[in-house]
Design a binder for these strands. Sequence first.
DNA 1: TGGTATCATGCAAGCGCTTGCAACGGCTTT
DNA 2: AAAGCCGTTGCAAGCGCTTGCATGATACCA
Lengths: 333, 333
Amino acid sequence: MGEDSKIPKLEDVAEIAGVSSATVSRFFNNPGMVAAATAERIRAAVAQSHYVPNLMAGGLASSRSRLVAVMVPDIAQSIFNATVEAMVDELSVGGDIVMLGLTGIDNARMPHLISAALARRADAIILTGLLTDQATRDLIRRRETTVIETWGLPEDPIDIAVGFSHRAVGQDIARFVHGRGYRRPHLLSASGTRAMERRQGFLDDWASAGGATPTEQVFTSQTRFGHGRAAFRSLRELDERPDVVVCSSDWLAQGLLVEAMAAGVRVPDELAVVGFGNLTMAAEMRPTITTVDIDGARIGREAVNVLRRRAAGEKIEQRHIDVGFRLMVRESA
Amino acid sequence: MGEDSKIPKLEDVAEIAGVSSATVSRFFNNPGMVAAATAERIRAAVAQSHYVPNLMAGGLASSRSRLVAVMVPDIAQSIFNATVEAMVDELSVGGDIVMLGLTGIDNARMPHLISAALARRADAIILTGLLTDQATRDLIRRRETTVIETWGLPEDPIDIAVGFSHRAVGQDIARFVHGRGYRRPHLLSASGTRAMERRQGFLDDWASAGGATPTEQVFTSQTRFGHGRAAFRSLRELDERPDVVVCSSDWLAQGLLVEAMAAGVRVPDELAVVGFGNLTMAAEMRPTITTVDIDGARIGREAVNVLRRRAAGEKIEQRHIDVGFRLMVRESA
DNA sequence: TGGTATCATGCAAGCGCTTGCAACGGCTTT
DNA sequence: AAAGCCGTTGCAAGCGCTTGCATGATACCA
């Protein structure tokens, strides 16, 4: 406890405890290896000196950073948040931390952020958006970094993918909607790759069920509540009004419902609505929203689980982990 | 480009470029210091070898991690998201990364996460929630780590605070509500420290304006859409019905509005509603929601700005940076 | 042309930890 | 009683970079 006590290092602790620094290191990284009595002395020394390990030094020596990079388009009101949250929770329990990278809605900053992650020697990189940049993919391959792609199941994942089939979602919705007797669907989609996959799934299945080509509308920005409201109004001007609107987000659905309510249009009798995402609000809305539930937290947990198994030396053959999805049939359709 | 080419290091680049590793290091950290011709050769060598610096080694040597820890209660549907997003954006431009720590709604995991941040030798720690644990505060003080507390202006900040006065928000709302002629407010608050400060501000000001003590309701969990809906119904059972409901979040306000709409209650004529947070949806809701706007992104930018000035060696006297707030008067009140 | 300031670079000593290897004492085994 | 063995610990060589200091090469000035 000197006057201008500097930041204590392993050696200081070792000295206090009367052992070598190697032993203190083992105390932290390999507790089973040090004798009980010694451990006790070290514990005391740590407390006394307020020692906090320097993981930069440790990481350099062991070449394990205990840092996982998580790339997400944004977190403003993102559907990925539950996944990120689950990952952060799960990882920090094990002493790992997450570096959060916001790639932008169009994933433009992805390459830059991947470099940053590699520079920190991240133990793994988890992606929620798509990594299309070939140079970056090559870079990652060369480094043999563990990469987990989530929220989708690309044909040829960089490494391992945890997600579900967006195509199947679209198909299931089509089947459901058709089964319910709706015949004039209108599609409200975001323009992203995945929303487009769901749309295509819907269209394919709808066509093969003999339905007429649905009317539709595509939003190039992130879909929001306001878009749903606006969409409702434009729908009222269509020659042949749809009997069900299939939205690529619950936000759209909610906007639609509020506007329908204000206009006195009965849901689902006059107009049915299907959302996507199963936000908390979807079950609380009036009427409750029929939507597709994705267990985002589970995606996060599975991803971390794969990481742990990898770290434990396990060879993982399975390149696709399908967490599926659930159609939540409620009042709105 | 050997067969089993290992990860290239500074020295490999140096060799290719025909300089010493020190020069390559300077090329990265102090570009102005190396001759143009040399720089060009190094640039080529870097490209050829696909070199990515090892920031763990760099950080160890320079004792600057270029890592900023950001602590947030959660990101599920958090009001802090804009702040976090702004910080991540701003920081990653400068080559810094953010370690995201989720402390839990009650900030229970805060101490553990602070330790993790200190272990990584984070250059700074940014808090959005409150750090009440004394031991942890001491630890931080001892390490002389830069700490920025955001979204509030505590009397005695650990280091520097960037935020606004919750008390003042409550007072302003009280004045506004009173000015509009409402006389029977009902308060819907979350139980957190800050929501309670706003509540107290409201109550104080309301009392001094001669108003009767408002009825109220406190939620111990995070306030959500569903709570607003439920609250509306319980309000209808009060002997003396309120003429305005002051909510501690826009979610509550939205729930209230939807339920009011369904019940055919006219807003604001029969019942006015005031929210807090100015979520995107608040301006899009029907009716649009009168609420309080906090420029969360600005809080993030200001915080990073302080960090940068600190890093540049500037002594910062100002311990409180007030970003203020704006009452957004719209249709609902 | 010598003296000196300037610029660019190299040298080498760390930064604080991890870990393979060796050593040591006490036990068990034969 | 000699030979192994096991559980603990210490030794010391790095991990890949940064940076103070020294050096050499140029440029500038009188």
